[in-house]
Write a protein that binds this DNA or RNA. Structure first.
Length: 117
DNA sequence: TTTACACACCGTCAAATTAG
DNA sequence: CTAATTTGACGGTGTGTAAA
C-alpha cells in the first residue's frame, strides 16, 4: 500500500490556475452518483438460463455485483492514471519554476558583483 | 523469423473504507 | 451492524522492440 490514500477525487478547478497546468482539487470521495446499470446480457441462447438469471434473486445480485466490480476496477485505474498524470504535470511545472528562479538568482548575483566588485 | 523482455491493460480477489 | 465501494496485489494476455 505505498500508493496514495484512497480519498482522492480530482475535481478540476479553473484551468491555468497554477501555471499552464490543469489544477485539481483533492476531495474525500463523496457520493458518486451511481447510475443504475440497466445493461443485462440477454443472450437468446437458452430460455432456461435466462429464466434463472431473471428469477433467482441471489443469482441476480451476484451478477450485478460482479459487473459493478469490473466497472469499479476500470474507474479506479482511470482515476489513478489521471492522478499520476496530474503529478507529472506538477513536476514539470515546478522544474520550470526552479529553472527560472535559478536564472534570476544568477542574474542578481552577477549584478551584485558588478556593483561591489 | 523466432525468442526474450518490457510494458500496458484487464479481470479477479481480498482487505480496507464508506454509506445507510 | 451489513452492504456497497474503493483500491492494492496478482496473474493472464496482447503488443512493440531488440537481439539471436
Amino acid at each position: 500500500m505505498l500508493m496514495t490514500p484512497n480519498i482522492f477525487v480530482f475535481v478540476p478547478l479553473s484551468p491555468a490556475s497554477a501555471g499552464d497546468m490543469q489544477a485539481y482539487q483533492i476531495r474525500s470521495s463523496t457520493t458518486t452518483s451511481s447510475l443504475p446499470q440497466t445493461v443485462v446480457m440477454t443472450s437468446p441462447v437458452s430460455i432456461a438460463s435466462q429464466t434463472t438469471k431473471t428469477d433467482d434473486p441471489q443469482m441476480k445480485r451476484e451478477i450485478r455485483l460482479a459487473k459493478q466490480q469490473v466497472k469499479a476496477a476500470r474507474e479506479c485505474r482511470r482515476k489513478k492514471k489521471e492522478y499520476v498524470k496530474c503529478l507529472e504535470n506538477r513536476v514539470a511545472v515546478l522544474e520550470n519554476q526552479n529553472k527560472t528562479l535559478i536564472g534570476q538568482l544568477k542574474t542578481l548575483k552577477d549584478l551584485y558583483c558588478v556593483k561591489t566588485g
